[in-house]
Amino acid sequence: MAKNLWREKGMVNLAEKIYEMTGENVYLCYLCGKCGAGCPMADKMDYLPYQVIHMIQINDMESLNAKSIWICATCFTCSVRCPRNLDVARIMDGLRTIKVRAQEQTIDLREVEDLDKLPPIALVAAGRKYT
């Protein structure tokens, strides 16, 4: 298991942090895999949504470094299908927000190719999610 920096520093655990931020209780998840099965971006992800949730349950900080949380396009397919009524997209956004609030941005809009061709909606959305 990855080193638990927050606990060493006397901070709350990841599941509590996510609960505080998003109001979603990750311990409700019983890992049925429905979110991963229906996810349109699943084939690009390193950890499927339920695997990310499992990592949060066991307080594995590696979940914050998962590529998946940036590949999730917040399409809510998982959220409407979850049998436990967990808003999975919201949990993913919670993880992203932890990273973004720690100033770990994943995009520099100046380096985007096709910048002049992309519709404004894409740039605004990417700016809000990745920075």
């Binding site: 971006m41 396009a73 399409c75 994943t106 894409a122 990417a126 990745y130």
Partner: peptide, 9 residues
């Protein structure tokens, strides 16, 4: 979903 704003990154 079509991939949405992932088109930027």
């Amino acid at each position: 979903c079509c991939g949405s704003y992932n088109v930027v990154r």
